[in-house]
Amino acid sequence: MLHVNGVDHLVCVEARRSLADTLRQDCGLTGTHVGCEHGVCGSCTVIVDGVAVRACLMFAVQAQGLPIRTVEGLACGDILHPLQEAFIAHHGLQCGFCTPGFLMLAAAALEQDAWLDDAAILDLVSSNLCRCTGYQTILAAVKAAAIVMREEA
């Protein structure tokens, strides 16, 4: 049983199936992407039990019963998450393949501490790879979202 974005998914997978592949292929949640399958690119980043993890380096069986959040659960109905808004406003995406990973990476960090300073945000954003944007607009988006999230908190 996988508990994703508040919904239970009953799936039956081999032990070797990664959480990323299971979300994508067995739960139908293809917003989580797979770029390298060895932990470097971060496209597969999701939130498990409150922290951002590489879903390619975790087996689905390990995530049983834990709360999992993916990009599909980030917006609240029609209302985008401040990070999603900021990525659009600051042109933090081009092809958009890396975007779900960056969103989940930043969401986990900012929901824990919206007061991250610029150096901490740089460290955070350097966790994932983007080939299109050159990162500066992603940094700007995360910083802008942090301000919004501080006000909301």
Partner: peptide
């Protein structure tokens, strides 16, 4: 610890 990999890897 700040030199070890990145946040999501350090989380696991």
């Amino acid at each position: 610890v700040r030199h070890i990999a990145h946040v999501p890897i350090r989380n696991r």
